[in-house]
Measured scan of single mutants.
Amino acid sequence: DTFTFTLDGIEVRLHGASEELIKTIEELLKRDIRWEELEKWIREWEK
């Protein structure tokens, strides 16, 4: 599955994202998160 969203005018596609990761990103997007914050968060998630 591919999860697609737009952040700061950039279309982002995550391939093979888990349901948990998708739900977490959706929550972060509701908080009007900035790209830099999401990028940092995703790097931490990957560890």
Results as ranks from 00 to 15, higher is better:
Thr2His: 10
Trp45Arg: 01
Glu39Pro: 05
Ser18Tyr: 03
Leu21Val: 13
Leu29Glu: 01
Leu21Gln: 09
Ile22Asp: 00
Arg13Leu: 08
Ile33Asn: 03
Glu36Gly: 08
Lys40Val: 12
Phe3Pro: 02
Asp8Ser: 04
Ile10Gly: 02
Glu36Tyr: 08
Lys40Arg: 13
Lys40Met: 12
Leu29Asn: 01
Asp32Tyr: 05
Leu29Gly: 01
Ser18Val: 04
Glu11Gln: 07
Arg43Asn: 12
Gly9Met: 04
Glu20Arg: 05
Gly16Val: 05
Glu39Arg: 06
Ile10Phe: 14
Asp1Lys: 15
Ile33Glu: 03
Glu19Asn: 12
Ile22Tyr: 03
Glu20Val: 09
Val12Glu: 01
Lys23Pro: 01
Thr2Gly: 08
Trp45Ile: 07
Glu39Asn: 07
Lys23Val: 06
Glu39Phe: 10
Asp32His: 12
Leu28Thr: 02
Ile22Cys: 04
Ile42Glu: 00
Glu46His: 11
Arg34Trp: 06
Lys30Asn: 12
Gly9Gln: 04
Arg34Tyr: 06
Lys47Tyr: 14
Leu14Phe: 07
Leu14Met: 09
Ala17Gln: 03
Leu29His: 01
Thr6Ile: 15
Glu36His: 14
Arg43Cys: 10
Glu11Ser: 06
Phe3Leu: 04
Leu21Glu: 07
Glu26Asp: 08
Leu28Gln: 05
Asp1Ile: 14
Gly9Asn: 06
Glu11Ile: 10
Glu27Pro: 01
Glu39Lys: 09
Leu38Glu: 00
Arg43Trp: 10
Gly16Arg: 05
Lys47Cys: 06
Arg31Lys: 14
Trp41Arg: 07
Arg43Gln: 14
Lys40Phe: 10
Thr4Leu: 08
Phe3Tyr: 15
Glu37Arg: 04
Lys30Trp: 04
Ile10Asn: 10
Ala17Thr: 04
Glu36Met: 07
Glu26Pro: 01
Glu19Gln: 13
Trp35Leu: 11
Leu38Asp: 00
Leu29Val: 07
Leu21Cys: 04
Asp8Leu: 05
Glu19Ala: 13
Arg34Lys: 12
Lys23Ser: 12
Trp35Phe: 14
Arg31Gln: 12
Leu7Met: 07
Lys23Gly: 09
Asp8Trp: 03
Thr6Asp: 06
Phe5Gln: 00
Glu11Asp: 06
Lys23Gln: 11
Glu46Gln: 08
Gly9Glu: 06
Ala17Ser: 05
Glu39Gln: 10
Lys47Ala: 15
Glu27Asp: 12
Glu39Leu: 10
Arg13Met: 14
Glu39Val: 10
Glu46Tyr: 15
Lys23Glu: 10
Glu37Phe: 08
Lys40Ser: 11
Leu38Trp: 15
Trp45Pro: 01
Arg13Tyr: 11
Glu37Leu: 07
Phe5Val: 06
Phe3His: 03
Asp32Trp: 04
Thr4Pro: 02
Lys30Ala: 12
Leu29Thr: 02
Thr4Phe: 09
Val12Ser: 01
